[in-house]
Amino acid sequence: MTLSSRSLLPLLCATVTLHVVAAPMPLSAYLALEGPAPGATYAYGPAPSQYAELFVPSGPGPFPVAVLVHGGCWTKQYGGITQLRNMAGALRARGIAVWNVEYRRVDEAGGGYPGTYQDINAALDLLAARAPASKLDLQRIVAVGHSAGGQLVQWIAGRNRIAASSPLYQAQPLPIRSVVSLGGLADLRSEQALIKSSCERDLVDLTGVPSATRPDVFSDTNAAELMPNGSHTLLVTGELDTVSPPRVAHDYAARARKAGDRAEVVILPGASHYDEVAATSAAWPTVLEVIESALQSARH
């Protein structure tokens, strides 16, 4: 069956399996993904990776906004923003503006903790500043992240709970309460072994080291520690995803619901970790429905 945008909204605390026939996409096909050039590119810092791409539909606006945050195991090795242009072009064709974010990764100068998170903060600050001139409706906004980007967008939803003593603290962050995590690796504390096996990543790169003022390195980096935060998280995972298997989505959703937040799991039958972000895949219509439904529920 397929699930309409309207019917997805009431499914709080539900697990949905959608029967879509799809050939699993390999990493090589993902790396070959491409899409249209952005309408504009804006730097939010001096480093080469500190920028975001803006895709705005034609028409008078104002337009709903999807913030896209790519994955790649937090490294430069596995592509990122270029591949997500494939999704950005498809969303723009549906009347959704896209803010496609690049950021410093752990193998770049200044990346990791705290720089990667500070980049996300700065990119969202710039989005808020650009919104009026670019005809963007920030009352209808969703953050969509893939893999490592799923970790970052799930973290975005809880930024308001970060302590003022943290270098990641912001007094008035742009509120984003609707999140779509595509094969996200969000729970750093609980998924340390998986992150190591899937990405060969030591968590110290993502969390920093303990200090007297910050004894728990997960307190400001782990999305699961920053709940409840009033968010609505849609965890979308390919049935054949081996980087972030369906169990990860189910476990995080259960933790979010226990904390008092809304969370749903959508499994894409026959889909791999890479089908989740490809507008050319058989899974894309389902992913699109989830994003559009999240935008509907984001209106406030």
Rank of each mutant, 00 (worst) to 15 (best):
R299N: 12
P285V: 01
A253C: 06
R262P: 02
K196N: 10
S219W: 12
E200R: 13
A283Q: 06
V204Q: 08
P285E: 07
D251R: 11
V236Y: 07
V217H: 03
H232G: 14
L206Q: 01
F218C: 01
T221L: 02
V217Y: 10
V265E: 00
T213R: 15
S219D: 10
S297E: 15
E200K: 04
R262A: 11
E200W: 07
S198L: 04
P210T: 12
E264Y: 06
S198D: 11
S297A: 15
V277G: 06
H232F: 12
D202C: 05
T233M: 11
A278Q: 14
V266Y: 04
G238F: 13
R255S: 13
R255H: 13
H250S: 12
L235A: 14
N229G: 00
P269D: 15
T242K: 13
T207Y: 07
A278R: 08
I267R: 01
S231M: 06
D205K: 10
I195V: 08
T213H: 12
P285D: 06
V204G: 04
D220E: 10
D241S: 02
G208V: 02
V243I: 14
G208S: 03
R247G: 12
K258R: 10
T286I: 08
L240M: 10
A254D: 09
T242C: 08
L295D: 10
S197V: 09
E225T: 06
